[in-house]
Nucleic acid binder design. Structure first.
Lengths: 204, 204
DNA sequence: TGTACATCAGTGAACGCGCGTTCACTGATGTAC
DNA sequence: TGTACATCAGTGAACGCGCGTTCACTGATGTAC
């Protein structure tokens, strides 16, 4: 009944949930195939081995997240022409989105892989690296536009600022999990937004 | 020759390195005892099971880190009486410290456990929670002192600000690992410092 | 000071179970002529 | 339109290995009388 690519996506869905809940290593192929209602050999038809699953998981996750960020950027661009306001709206929308996303926020898969990296193949390592560099590039462009229009009130590197978006998200997710306070990440994003405001915004 | 507590600490040292390198699950008791030059049964004399090792690892790590933070706080207190300056110096010292600590920074063990938590017993979970709450309490006190003396230039919660220190450290470590840029974390701390300055410091 | 017993810090061998992976095979669908 | 072959999306059984854990035992040190 189900086509091959359906099964493959079902495997990825189930695997993602499990990996976010308890880590890649603790997620067995056995439990994935039980959830997807296929046999273990069915799994190996779709993925050469467990590393290939990890790679696919990261790549798909990054793609989803990129689309999500693109959407937020488009929405904030539609609301203003000012590059600084665009960032501030973007961060506000991001915080709202994270607040309404109690479990399984984006970012986790990458962080989760980062903390087990010796375990993984170079391909997985590389996928992770691409993901983080992609975030840096995206946010750097946003901040560079703001910097061109507004003088910084403190001399900081735009690249570092770009990384701070990812760092605050990732760190927020770690804290949110450790404390079981799902909205902690959103509040951290709003603090970052406050920083951006103080850093760029002309003083009254 | 070696006393019991020496062996125990040797086990913890070796386990910590391995856990930071590849995660708790991927670290086998076998490899730990090989490094510590004892037999597997020797390990089980010191730790009832693998969960108990995780607990001990977190607790010891938190203790070390608390002492480290206490040291930085004492040094910055010695340099100034002003509560805001104290925070700024503290963050500067922290950044310097992280810069000179290429591998195995503090914070990792907790984050690493956070991302595999379903795997662990409640005791491990609780140890992690205590750790994060301890950080919040420490930094909240520092920021509360500053707030009492300086008006905030943007209305933010002191508790969130306190969490931001931990979040930026944890997030920075994730990014640093993902990109293999060890000094990324230190630079993120300095950005946080810039935020604190802009948020509290009277404008000229 | 000597003896008896207890505790400490382990050893060595064995266990069973779960896991990732392989392999030969299969029924349904697609394609060529 | 029918037949032959190929590909797709799996099944089912078996594998071997590594892992966490257990258990009976041991030599060295500490303590009581």
């Amino acid at each position: 009944m189900a086509k091959g690519s359906d099964t493959r996506n079902r495997i990825l869905d189930i695997a993602q949930d499990a990996v976010l809940a308890k880590g890649f290593d603790a997620t067995s192929i056995e439990e994935i195939v039980a959830g997807a209602d296929i046999t273990k050999s069915g799994f190996f038809y779709h993925f050469r081995d467990k590393n290939t699953l990890a790679e696919a998981l990261i790549d798909r996750h990054v793609k989803t997240e990129d689309e999500l960020f693109d959407g937020l950027a488009a929405r904030s661009s539609a609301l203003t022409d000012d590059p600084l306001q665009k960032i501030l709206i973007f961060l506000k929308l991001l915080a709202e989105l994270l607040e309404n996303m109690p479990e399984g926020h984006p970012g986790c898969i990458v962080a989760s892989a980062v903390y087990q990296d010796r375990l993984f193949s170079n391909a997985v390592h590389a996928a992770n690296r691409r993901a983080v560099l992609g975030w840096r590039k995206r946010f750097r462009e946003m901040f560079a536009m703001a910097e061109a229009n507004y003088p910084l009130h403190d001399p900081v590197e735009i690249d570092d600022l770009a990384d701070m978006v990812s760092a605050v998200i990732e760190g927020g997710l770690v804290m949110a999990r450790g404390l079981n306070e799902p909205d902690l990440t959103a509040r951290q994003i709003l603090l970052l937004r406050s920083y951006v405001k103080l850093l760029f915004q002309p003083r009254v």
